[in-house]
Amino acid sequence: MPKHTLSVLVENHAGVLSRVAGLFSRRGFNIDSLAVGVTEDPNVSRMTIIVDGDDYTVEQVTKQLNKLIDVIKIRRLNPEESVQRELALIKVNATSATRSEIIQIVDIFRANIVDVSKNTLTIEMTGSEDKIAAFEEMLKQFGIKEMVRTGMIAIERGNKIIKAEASGDNGSVNGTVDE
């Protein structure tokens, strides 16, 4: 199934996340990841949702999300025209014998080492899904003890922005915008 990136601006209230998550489970939509955080406007949060499904599913997800009163705006981001990043923290086995090799790999991937112990290295890695997957693959040989990921966040390239102010996009789906 193809993956689609939705940027969703929502009111920054308690309960909004559960409404959105509940909608996905109730209507049988699959999500790969959901990341949420506050925006430049403290009253508005932005969710980045990676949806797994065909065009029908993504259209349904969009329309159903739009029905939630707390959802202000939704935009489907084209991967070609947006920057998509995820943060991963990876704790990997490291001995005196393997440590320098791991550091080299970290350098190649432009990741950072954020914690060191006698037996482990903890690495912070930012990148696209592919880059994180490639990095993970390289580290597997040393033994990954723990891995935690934020889920993808995304922003459009260039001058385009998604603002909460402009409203009335509920009817824009299906080429049926307001007169």
């Binding site: 409203s167 509920n170 049926t176 007169e179």
Partner: peptide, 15 residues
């Protein structure tokens, strides 16, 4: 005035 709730009442002319 609820910014996330603006029902569409008028039909699109083209449609």
């Amino acid at each position: 005035d609820i910014r996330g709730y603006k029902p569409t009442y008028k039909g699109h002319a083209l449609q």
